[in-house]
Design a binder for these strands. Sequence first.
DNA 1: CACTAGTGCAA
DNA 2: TATTGCACTAGTG
Length: 488
Amino acid sequence: MTAFAPAIRLEGVEEDVMLSAYLVDPNRTNYRVPEIAREHLGIELASEIAGIDPDDARALQAADFTFQLAAVLRSKLAGLELEEVYTGIELPLVEILFEMEQIGVRVDIAQLHEAGIEIDREVGRLTGQIYGLAGQEFNINSTIQLGEVFEKLNIETGKKTKTGRVSTSFDVLEELAAKYELPKKIMEYRELSKLKSTYVDALPRLISPRTGRIHTTLNQAVAATGRLSSTNPNLQNIPIRTEMGRRIRAAFVASPGFVMMSADYSQIELRIFAHITGDPVMTQAFQSGEDVHASTARAVFGAKTPEQESEYRRVAKIVNFAIAYDIGPFGLAQRTGLSRAEARKVIDNYYQTYTGVRHYMEETPNLVRKSGLVRTIFGRIRPIPDIGNRNHNLRARAEREAINAPIQGTAADLVKIAMVRVYHRLLKEKLGARMIMQVHDELLLEVPEAEVEKTSRAVREEMESVHELTVPLVVDIGIGKNWMEAKP
DNA sequence: CACTAGTGCAA
DNA sequence: TATTGCACTAGTG
């Protein structure tokens, strides 16, 4: 037995310990053995303490502590009634995530390169225009230098960052763009340079020489709500909103003989919101297959004709989000262009229509004060330690977290369970499709061209029947030769 | 090289 | 004065 053998054996067990620690306290940020040992055993790895030779102690000690931790955490999981989440959701998912990472995603470098050349040309043109408007050359990427240029030209809103410097954020630039040319050009510059540095330049460097594909890391114990996260690269924030962004997404392509299939849950968080709050009006809207944003437009803005419905639908959609995040009249006004007084009336109207929602919003903080935590419908917990904080801002934030975590977390649970079910269904039906990404409410698969119909049916069935709620779950499926085309 | 600040991409 | 993430560049020490 060599010295590093315990460290190797540790890998599998460490996964269990890490996941247990995550479920017991999803708010923590570090799931390495030393930190977990300190937290749950009250002891430290000798190798983490200065003066002890780590080569000597680390592996054996880490293994020892890990086994001690397994017992401690098992009983903590039981005490918190988290065994079901652990064995029913997280553990079955481990091997599936591992396989997704191994398979990777195919990216067409040539398409990215082409987009990069166009971006360079446009950014060069914008740079010249910006220097001209500024009357000087400077580093456009520097918020400090850009702020100085704005001050010199008396282009300002007075808004400052938290450290007291001139803010050059999107909101500020947008406001200034109504009066000045320079901020408009900065916005165009930022959009393109962001896409270039974060995606067009970065993604090709991450293609594995061995597989020719991109292999992200899917983190199972990071997000406080139970969501997955993705790093190196983050494949959960691939652009889609702008024209150039869509071209980047289109560079994620299916392997030869395969097509991309994207299956996403329609309005999953709002449906869960209806289920959790038990609101009869929202529930009824979903049950009858209505467009819920449109029905909010009718209820809150009194939209009567189809024309009025579509006129107010955009704002109604923001209102639905605004309530679920509890952003208040100020936040709603800022995001809709309504006045604060109007926004307050809209929120009042909303609560008069959706009385079940109002009840949930009022009662959640009270319930949290009793237990110190909230749960998803599957029992996953999120501790809310700041619910009794004397600092108003921290307490208000804690209340929003308490309201939102069961919604976001239940969606995360449902998608995780769906992944396990889809995976086994594909095996059972001997389908050649492979799951390659998850983006919170969406599963991305590569599907053999000849099996699209069968796979589509299987995926939809598993996802829509993943768990019975008071409202139906609806899945939209799209097919294409790349990720952009596949978005339904 | 490690760290923070500011910004912006996604659901 | 919106939830959850990750990552880029600038700038500091």
